[in-house]
Write a protein that binds this DNA or RNA. Structure first.
Lengths: 255, 255
DNA sequence: CGTAAAGTTGAATTCTTTCAAACACGGTGG
DNA sequence: CCACCGTGTTTGAAAGAATTCAACTTTACG
């Protein structure tokens, strides 16, 4: 494994954490808690590592800007991308809070990351925050479970269709004015490692989908050409994810 | 889908929740909390459903005895098993606490399940419990992520090898005197749906593994014949799971 | 302008599925 | 006690999907 840290972290000014993504309540509490402090931020260029599998300098983070992939490297050197992290999402949490990282966090695009210090301590003074974290964890679980179901039984076509719709839906939660063309910093090999395919097969399948007028990827953008066809392919897989709507966190009572 | 509830629930007496599995601290708090109450328990025979995808009678549970599979049915009628639940594990939690269940919980063997009422309320009076739940959720996540990595890139051989070792390790946490032969209530079709294969291919692969003296399944028992070979095949995948050791929860400070 | 990274294409191979059929086993009812 | 039936297991042959290997083209970027 020849992964190297491409770039070191930079510090930024006070952090007005955005209240969107998986953890608006969490970021709200944090920004209140730290409004008088300088909350540490990290700016990383694209294709650099926030942390590597095995690293000990453990922290928790909220992604403020950019895209991040969480992945695990297996013994034979192959990479499995576990999930994508979009602005507002939480990352870095693991059972052994101070143990070595069990995954690698790589930026896909220029990113700004907010460091969450002493998560456990904050949870003790803010009991409601801990339960929010449980909620966030459950949402991440649903996403991962849905990828599992998708990869497990789906053809390359279906896997890619699912990925496209899943990312589209998650971005839609962050920007209701989103068109059918979304930013897409993954290269074909990233898609392959996310979906359990080879980049060659991803390439062929993408070509076919584009030729059929369903979906196209070019210049770091993904464009949904035929939403209905995509939804017919994998829509039902997405249903469990709808229970992770941000509105549900902000107003959990309103079923 | 013609799934029917095979058997209705029965009630049992006071629940001395066992302090093992993923949530010993959780069950400890619960049993203290309810030591004077009659905590509701459900007894279910093998191959019956604790809840079905879509059910509204939502609760949280701790599995006390038996084996349970969590699965999701996709539109085309195929079943994806999300994960197995062993005694002491938590189940039933989801983002929409009172929404319809997003998965189905089926018993594989005769099971006893402890009902956890009003989880959110308990968390408010026991702040430390909420953070324990976060911990439990993170452990479940690692298990699911590891299955994802296994299914995504592994051959049928590797997938089965991984499943065997994973179950073996989790049972070992519950019974240190476990031999190399473990109870195994899954039929070949369950294995198939857990690993994203067809039962026919599972059959062929199991035959081959048995013929090679690596692993055998018969009479509802799985026997590890050559641990070293299995570990060489998939051992490195298991490493992240070691951070979920129960000891870590009971003494989280002791790194 | 030159190099490295990413994308593209073809042909052969491997793994897995599909379809079809047979077998083994345990339980039920006659 | 035996015939029957359903569930789960086993096996074969053909078809299909994805990978591998190898080479080539295009794009991005200093």
């Amino acid at each position: 494994m020849d992964i190297q840290r491409k770039n070191s972290a930079g510090l930024c000014s006070t952090c007005p954490i955005r209240h969107y993504g998986l953890c608006p309540a969490l970021s709200k509490i944090l920004s209140e808690q730290f409004e008088t402090h300088d909350l540490r931020q990290i700016s990383l260029p694209a294709k650099s590592y926030l942390y590597l599998q095995g690293d000990l300098n453990n922290s928790n983070y909220i992604l403020k800007e950019g895209w991040v992939l969480l992945s695990r490297i297996t013994q034979d050197g192959s990479r499995q991308v576990l999930r994508s992290v979009l602005p507002g999402d939480f990352l870095g949490f693991q059972p052994e809070l101070n143990g070595p990282h069990i995954d690698t966090a790589m930026t896909l695009s220029d990113s700004v990351i907010c460091v969450v210090p002493e998560l456990e301590a904050i949870c003790q003074t803010h009991p409601e925050l801990a339960f929010r974290l449980v909620w966030v964890g459950a949402c991440e679980m649903i996403l991962t479970e849905t990828y599992l179901a998708n990869i497990s039984k789906g053809s390359a076509r279906k896997r890619i269709a699912f990925m496209a719709l899943e990312l589209y839906q998650r971005l839609l939660l962050r920007d209701m004015n989103l068109g059918y063309s979304i930013p897409f910093p993954l290269v074909q090999e990233d898609i392959a490692d996310l979906l359990g395919l080879t980049s060659i097969h991803v390439n062929r399948t993408l070509k076919k989908l584009a030729a059929e007028g369903i979906l196209k990827v070019e210049k770091h953008r993904l464009t949904i050409l035929d939403y209905d066809v995509l939804y017919a392919m994998v829509g039902s897989l997405l249903e469990p994810l709808e229970t992770c709507d941000i509105a549900k966190e902000l107003h959990p009572a309103s079923k």
